[in-house]
Write a protein that binds this DNA or RNA. Structure first.
Lengths: 152, 152
DNA sequence: AGCCTTCTGTTGAACTTTCAACTATGTGGG
DNA sequence: CCCACATAGTTGAAAGTTCAACAGAAGGCT
């Protein structure tokens, strides 16, 4: 067993700031959406992906991949969203195994309402408190992380 | 109702890269710890805080605050860690309501083992794939976020 | 065709987190 | 001292997530 390459003091400081800030920011955004719109952050993310898809519908597998959720989890979450009337599921003609999740009109309206508040909160606690250059750095860095993850 | 200040295209790109990369990175780290050491990321975080505290013990409330968990959640998580023998709870002499969570020797050893793998994974998927300057930017940015959150 | 393997999505059970009480102790004011 | 009120931590049930197993359909091979 070789000695691991521990982070140096500065790296550690930055990493920990990220871990802490990230947890707390995520929690805040989740609470904010829940209290104002009855949507959890993962639910919100699903609605966003659907709203951006052609015809506002996506196959379950693709939606799961876009939202970085397991299929099982998406299945459960979709059932909840369906019972709220924000989403409905329809079959896929070309592949009888397939299922399309569609955003309903009501779902689109709910997303629109939620997004208006959400963006305001994201600004208030993130965008507006950091340096524009640092935002670019974050975008660059996490794009690199995604590429690294995709390389597996 | 005023029109919200939507993010511009570039801000949106960076923010989304962060949201996606962050989810996937967190998931990877969690899975990695679980499969190799049977610890979830939140459990790991708790052990880390305890290991750094004087005498490797902290009051429940303080531990909850450090690890950004609710008291209730910490209580449940601690029970699990206790049943694994990694933590034990003892009373507080000066405040009879109080409870100290202590890291056991076994807990410390388990944390040490886990940390060696964890740091390697953090490097592999984060530290080593991003620019050192971007890491600084991330540290700076999330420190600002934390300060903003604390201002409430 | 028949068979075997892979892929899609769902299901139910186990586990974790959240939420709303609740107990017990501390604190400050009359 | 006594009371009301705040604080520490726990609890159990509800809600959400993970995990393993499953049914049905597609694809490929002989």
């Amino acid at each position: 067993m070789t000695e691991p390459r521990w982070l140096d003091a500065t790296q550690q400081l930055h990493w920990r700031a990220f871990v802490d800030g990230n947890i707390r920011l995520t929690e805040l955004l989740d609470r904010d959406l829940k209290s104002k719109h009855g949507l959890s952050l993962p639910e919100y993310e699903i609605l966003v992906r659907l709203s951006e898809a052609p015809e506002r519908r996506l196959r379950m597998a693709e939606l799961a991949a876009n939202a970085s959720q397991s299929r099982s989890r998406l299945s459960h979450t979709c059932s909840r969203l369906e019972s709220k009337g924000l989403v409905f599921r329809g079959g896929c003609p070309s592949d009888k195994r397939g299922v399309y999740a569609h955003l309903t009109e009501e779902g689109f309206a709910a997303l629109d309402r939620a997004a208006r508040d959400h963006v305001e909160t994201v600004r208030e606690y993130f965008i507006d408190v950091i340096d524009p250059g640092d935002l670019e750095a974050i975008g660059r860095a996490f794009t690199a992380v995604i590429n690294r993850l995709n390389a597996d």
